[in-house]
Design a protein around this nucleic acid. Structure first.
Lengths: 342, 342
DNA sequence: AGCCTGAAGAAAACCGGTTTTCTTAAGTGA
DNA sequence: TCACTTAAGAAAACCGGTTTTCTTCAGGCT
């Protein structure tokens, strides 16, 4: 079965019309400095290529140069909002470098990563956060395929591009203690996600540094349902404020509190790790820590491209810091914690 | 500069180890029915290929077969939640067909579509909703490159894969009138997006069919800010219920109403086109019309693959219907509309 | 006049596959 | 015994580029 590909203009077509061989066309179009052609010939070639709308065939080029000029971002699940933002940052920066960025969802049944790298479709990989023992990670390591880890730190990999997650926790604690809170609970992310562990550790050390009581953290995924379901337990420790690991968790927590008759922020404050578009419009509007996700994606691409150009991999913490967005879900602490319902 | 590509196992390597020529290896691995090999030779080849972890080079294969086995979904902006869901549906279905699906954001500076199709990187395109006169659309049409339009109907294209948008509007009106509402306002999408126009038309005809008054629609983008900013104007027509074109709009509208001291749903109801994860947890939880987006993405891939296999393009409205999720933002209509604030 | 040099471009090899054609040896029927 | 098939595999051509090597011709120098 022949491909359905239509009438594609090939290099040789340009060559024929311009009455030269395809080798010079190739070299002229790629601005090979060692080529010797008369200015008029060069002009003719460029003109013909333009008139015919010539576009090189990516596959053929990849074959000849063993470079595809494409990168892939592997994300655990693409409906995870932060990864979309990271991807957007990556897309743009990749384009600036002359690379095409592709987003692949890493669902288990069909390991997109293997398909892309073993198939030689991309030159490098941006690996998004995921469980630490992802099979692809081992594969990457031993095959020495160019890659960086984005928004996660694989210990000892020497190629982690991350944000200052500690600063985010610090900001949250700073904000809350500034409002007089002393009993702050943390709803952490899934226990097996590293960035979550960092956030938790930073949170605890910020609490510790201020001599505040360490309330037992709870672990769970980033959904509203988990926030809702976890709030009850969090209240057992009688916090006056709750720091969640995601917008979704915050919304779930706030909803539970509202249902329980606890007013936010008058009786209890909630702050979320990660900003989101609706944050300023929910009831109450949610105080958040905004993250430099676009910049993270861009920086990861920079690092990967540098690797492809021969630079050794390295760890990088991007200079852009998390930002606090004060809205309505945080307020002054009550003298005493609210009593949990029932 | 040589590629950084490591030690890749090639077809010829397999051939050498198996002590046959690469042509038979190729034909055995591709299960060519016309090949004649001894069973033992076949076994040996398969074994060696497996042991060496052979993976064909996608570029070389694309070159030889003029088929890349890759599809791209072009979305207007990838942080538009519905498109992510459509993409997920498309990814999975594509994988089932043996295709790799790629998601490309169509930002103006770097028209991803051209890059992908002119570069011969993909065999077909799933075109997401966008403004009608997108330059790529004209290009696709005249180049007869395989493509379908997803979630939008390009008039006369004969290759539109859409949902029953009319049914969504119908459901909303049905639900609201069932609650006694007679004055229903609609906050439409951007005027230039076709699916929005369909939704509006269906809404108006549903209103009309019931002999209800047609309140002037308002147009705007899908954001919370637009919902917030438009609510004031919508109230001028003294509606008892508002049907928004997106979750974001609904959140913005609800926030405005709350600010204005209007209780939702006691004094005014709000229903959103499109479900979203937080819908059940916001205050109040938002009544929505859920859309079969995963199925839409999958169906679009089916259609595109059919085209690639030689079937003529066609318009398709997927059989899965929108679903009503009744939550808290809609309730019985007041006898008389609330008075707008100030 | 004969030789050398460099400019300008042609020719060919190669990238890693797929597919068509060709070769060889064993088996078959007359 | 001999021409004729056929199984099994080798060889070669091709996909559309890139890159290296070769050829040709004109001009400059001695």
């Amino acid at each position: 079965m022949k491909g359905v590909q239509p009438d594609r203009v090939r290099l040789v077509d340009v060559a024929n019309v311009a009455e030269v061989t395809k080798s010079i066309v190739s070299r002229v179009l790629n601005a090979d400095p060692t080529v010797a052609v008369r200015p008029e010939t060069r002009q003719r070639i460029l003109q013909v290529a333009h008139d015919l709308g010539y576009q090189p065939h990516a596959g053929a080029r990849a074959l000849a140069k063993s470079r595809t000029m494409a990168l892939a971002l592997i994300a655990p699940s693409i409906d995870n909002p932060p990864y979309i933002t990271i991807a957007r940052g990556a897309y743009r920066r990749a384009a600036e470098h002359g690379y095409l960025a592709l987003l692949a969802e890493d669902f288990d049944e069909q390991p997109a990563g293997r398909l892309l790298i073993d198939g030689g479709r991309v030159d490098g990989l941006l690996m998004g956060s995921s469980v630490p023992d992802h099979p692809l990670v081992a594969h990457l390591r031993e095959s020495s395929f160019p890659h960086v880890f984005v928004n996660r730190a694989v210990a000892g990999s020497g190629r982690n591009v991350t944000m200052n997650v500690a600063r985010a926790s610090e900001l949250a604690v700073e904000h809350l203690t500034g409002l007089g809170h002393r009993r702050i609970a943390h709803l952490a992310g899934p226990a097996e996600v590293e960035s979550g562990a960092d956030r938790l550790a930073a949170f605890e050390s910020a609490i510790d540094a201020r001599g505040l009581p360490l309330l037992p953290p709870l672990f769970g995924d980033f959904t509203e349902a988990t926030g809702f379901a976890s709030a009850r337990t969090l209240l057992d420790a009688e916090p006056t404020a709750i720091f969640t690991s995601s917008p979704g968790q915050a919304i779930g927590v706030i909803r539970f509190l509202t249902n329980a008759g606890l007013r936010v922020p008058e009786e209890i404050s909630v702050i979320a790790y990660g900003d989101f578009p609706a944050a300023g419009f929910t009831v109450p509007a949610v105080t958040t820590i905004g993250l430099p996700l676009l910049e993270l994606g861009a920086a990861a691409v920079d690092e990967l491209v540098a690797q492809l150009d021969g630079a050794p991999p390295r760890d990088l913490v991007i200079p852009q810091e998390p930002r606090l967005f004060v809205r309505e879900s945080t307020g002054s602490a009550l003298a005493s914690p609210p009593t949990p319902p029932r």
